[in-house]
């Protein structure tokens, strides 16, 4: 039994601290996963809050026959799909993307949040200015022009810094890959 399973068992016995740990560990990844379906940050958070409220309320009757991680991601996937189905307007394009996503997910595992956390670790190590530019572009979805205006720099600089950031992340991640091969085998969330 790995750590998640242990926490889950303790939670089912009524331990709030274990539940808090699971919540904090999985909250952001589950939100990100829900976001991939619902395409709205607030709705994604509401769905995940709802999911945790549900398992909190029904802790006396839950039994799972898969890993905690699988159970969490699968539940949030179902909630997200239901949520979209009940939207009044769903354009054809979105339906198509959805279908392909469900297929892709069934083949691979859920959203790779171990990788995401590793990338975030590397993002935090970028030089401050480069990091800021990268975050504004990737996290806040700003256009290069908007970033340039906001930081009072040229679009060319944004372009260069973004290129450097990606290159650096790429290098750091392959370094990590080298050292982490053994680590990943034992550390599977």
């Amino acid at each position: 039994m790995n750590n998640n399973e242990l926490l889950f068992v303790q939670f089912l016995k009524g331990d709030t601290k274990s539940f808090e740990s699971l919540f904090k560990l999985f909250y952001a990844p589950l939100c990100m996963y829900a976001y991939k379906y619902v395409r709205d940050y607030d709705e994604a958070e509401d769905l995940v809050q709802g999911f945790f409220a549900k398992i909190w309320d029904s802790k006396s009757s839950i039994s799972i026959n898969t890993s905690v991680k699988n159970y969490f991601f699968r539940s949030v996937q179902n909630l997200s799909l239901n949520h979209i189905k009940h939207r009044t307007v769903v354009d054809q394009h979105q339906k198509e993307t959805l279908r392909s996503m469900v297929i892709a997910d069934n083949e691979q595992s859920a959203f790779d949040f171990v990788l995401a956390e590793r990338i975030n670790f590397c993002i935090d190590q970028l030089p401050p200015k480069r990091r800021e530019i990268f975050i504004l572009s990737r996290q806040h979805d700003l256009k290069y022009r908007e970033i340039a205006d906001k930081l009072n720099i040229s679009v060319k600089t944004v372009e260069t810094q973004m290129g450097l950031a990606l290159k650096e992340l790429r290098n750091k991640l392959s370094d990590i890959k080298k050292t982490l091969i053994g680590f990943i085998l034992t550390f599977s969330i």
């Binding site: 919540f23 909250y27 940050y41 958070e45 995401a116 990338i119 975030n120 990606l166």
Partner: peptide
Amino acid sequence: FNATTDAARMRRFDADKAWEKF
């Protein structure tokens, strides 16, 4: 590239704040 975007977007979600709300 998409993985870095996902990772960056995941930073929007603040588990500590969410827990307080929860």
